[in-house]
């Protein structure tokens, strides 16, 4: 969906440069996530998803010209 949004505003040569799963352990490194929030997520999401709750993506693109 993000690639489509980039194309919609005129970007070209859109590519995925990197994609890494982020699980609870990786999220726990960030001071933005207090322990009580991580506990809440741990309880709300099935255990099989705890190692890959989101993906960290780096997209590259270019403006035509």
């Amino acid at each position: 969906m993000l690639k489509r949004k980039l194309a919609n505003v005129g970007f070209v040569a859109i590519a995925t440069a990197e994609r890494r799963p982020f699980g609870l352990a990786a999220l726990g490194r960030y001071p933005l996530f207090p322990p009580e929030f991580l506990d809440f997520v741990r309880q709300a999401i099935p255990a099989e998803r705890h190692d890959a709750i989101v993906d960290a993506l780096v997209l590259t693109a270019r403006k035509p010209g």
Partner: peptide
């Protein structure tokens, strides 16, 4: 961005 300028965007996405 200037014509030919580059973008690199890092963010979370949901699978």
């Amino acid at each position: 961005l200037r014509p030919g300028g580059r973008l690199a965007l890092a963010d979370f996405v949901l699978g």
